[in-house]
Amino acid sequence: MKKFIAMLMAGAMAFSLAACGNQASKESQAGTDQTDKPEELSGSVVCLGSTSMTDVMTVLAEQFGMDHEGVTVSVEGGGSGAGVEAATNGTADLGLASRSLKDEEKSAGLVENIIALDGIAIIVNADNSVADLSVDQIAKIFTGEITNWSEVGGTAGEIAVIGRESGSGTRDGFESITKTEDKCKLNQELTSTGAVIEAVRGNTAAIGYASLSAVEHQNGINAITVDGVACNEDTILDGTYKIQRPFVIITKEGVELTAQTKAFFDWAMSKDAADLIRQAGAVPTAE
């Protein structure tokens, strides 16, 4: 009897695996069907730069690789500086930077193509009465200058400051916008967005930050307004929400992109990629 059950289960598992396989292949076929380009692209596309952009670019790279079987898109980190350098001397096909290009970089022939905007929401526990902070207050809280909620209009109680581990793109973004690089005094350094949200949900004295897409539709936490502006796609797109930065793909004037790079670039900047970008946590700028 036991043997029989075991065999039955093994059979069921094998069947379900086979079913999964079928589904996957169907989906990938559907993916290829969508792209109605007759000419076959092949070769590789190397994107290099900002680690904050890795999530977005990896999602795009994977989808593009599925749609065009001959093309492999690789995404490498190294930081925005490395992205600018790679675009300048051509060591990568596309450079990535999570900041606007400086004037001297633009005059050197680099072109700024904003693919998305990255909005970072400041979150507190739902029971916290504080609903608005200025960028300056936020910076002071994270650097330890303000340590009690009563100093910013809340009920008295020590503030628990929750951030991300060093190297995290969200942390990098938050700290560069609030100008608190390497000065943050944290109570908790968590390794994922979900963990930060969970920690804030469980602690009435907590403040933390997370990508906008991750905090929408979450119970138990409040995304506070910054300088009176709520954090949502509209305020990020019109630039009124302060804690945001652009995700930039850098190209160079006069340098012709390879066919596969151009196809990837055009697709990534188009509306077709907008949903994927949104899924990866950024606000797409394509219209």
């Binding site: 109680g157 503030i159 628990a160 929750i162 109570n187 908790q188 602690n203 907590a206």
Partner: peptide, 10 residues
């Protein structure tokens, strides 16, 4: 956090 009246229990 509640038992010891801390700002953060981690």
């Amino acid at each position: 956090q509640k038992a010891f009246h801390l700002s953060s229990g981690a």
